[in-house]
């Protein structure tokens, strides 16, 4: 087995999940300059809803191929998360659009606590396991192992990211989003319905989060009401690493963070002669993040250096 190839595959799959979640952070930030701390919890909700539906279908003995059942779960999770994203923006962020910068940050944290506890009330404190309905095929690639689920995650992420970029760069809606991000007032004067665009941004980001949450639970085989916190944190770091507000940056940042974590955990021990081990994986990741930001204060692909207070 080729260790390096395997670590790269591990990292890329993990990274593509980070990237999907990071897109949600970066889209909202690009338009509102707001860290939507509750985004990780939307991902969690996506995973929980999908699992609830899948669990119900499997429990009812529905005789369908596993992939189809899983897709039903995903299709149920997406609209729920979209509605959730829409509602969160209306309730917690819109009234604070002209408030001091940190006020929406606190409502976001409050929202994230609320969502966690609502999920705990609905689905309980236990870990929820993903039923073994997906194909478990394993393939050899350049001396390393890759599974069907991993391939599916990579492909889905790439397709979704490509679709999002096309949407933003090529369509009318995308143009309106970019205009709103650059200057909301002017965009409004030019006939863009700013409120609708902002809502749409949240809805789109939440849909991506639903997919990411579903993929995480399918990949690791479990979901828990607390899972959104770490995932959100990592994805947010990825978005900043790539340059927050920049779509390509979020993708690059996500993939990079995944690979850095993988290589860090895999190689720190050997590189430092056992002095530092895989417990410094996160230190390594944060260190790279700090180094990048110190050298390029606005992230890898971020353009704006000037702060807009």
């Amino acid at each position: 087995m080729d260790i390096l190839t395997q670590q790269l595959i591990n990292g890329l799959v993990l990274g593509s999940v980070y990237a999907l979640v990071a897109l949600g952070y970066t889209m909202v930030y690009g338009i509102l300059e707001l860290i939507n701390f509750a985004h990780g919890e939307i991902t969690m909700m996506g995973a929980m809803v999908a699992l609830a539906v899948i669990g119900a279908l499997v429990g009812a003995g529905v005789d369908l191929p596993g992939v189809v059942i899983a897709l039903f779960g995903l299709l149920a999770a997406i609209p729920v998360c979209m509605a959730l994203g829409f509602a969160i923006e209306r309730v917690a962020y819109r009234p604070l659009r002209h408030a001091p910068r940190l006020a929406p940050l606190i409502t976001a944290i409050g929202m994230s606590i609320v969502l966690q506890n609502v999920a705990m009330l609905i689905w309980g404190r236990q870990y929820i396991s993903f039923p073994p309905i997906l194909p478990q095929g394993r393939h050899q690639l350049l001396g390393a192992t890759i599974t069907d689920v991993q391939i599916a995650i990579l492909c889905t992420s790439v397709i979704l990211m490509a679709a999002l970029v096309t949407l933003v760069k090529r369509t009318r809606l995308g143009r309106a989003m970019r205009a709103t991000a650059q200057a909301p007032q002017i965009a409004g004067l030019m006939g863009v319905n700013v409120n609708t665009i902002i809502s749409l941004t949240f809805v789109l980001g939440s849909a991506l989060a639903a997919v990411a949450g579903f993929m995480v639970s399918a990949y690791y085989g479990l979901a828990h009401y607390y899972m959104g916190f770490m995932l959100g944190l990592k994805a947010f770091s990825a978005a900043v690493l790539g340059g927050i507000g920049n779509l390509a940056g979020a993708m690059l940042g996500g993939l990079l963070l995944g690979v850095i974590e993988s290589l860090g955990a895999g190689y720190i021990g050997d590189l430092t002669g056992g002095f530092l081990g895989s417990h410094y994986q996160d230190v390594f990741a944060f260190f790279v993040l700090i180094l990048v930001l110190v050298l390029r204060p606005s992230g890898l692909l971020g353009e704006r250096v000037v702060e807009r207070a």
Partner: peptide, 25 residues
């Protein structure tokens, strides 16, 4: 010193985690 706003936020967050991880290990 050169970082502002949310970039500073994430770096300080990382710093806090780094200290905790070192204490833990």
């Amino acid at each position: 010193l050169r970082l502002r706003g949310d970039y500073l936020a994430i770096v300080t967050l990382g710093f806090g985690e780094i200290i905790r991880i070192f204490l833990n290990n």
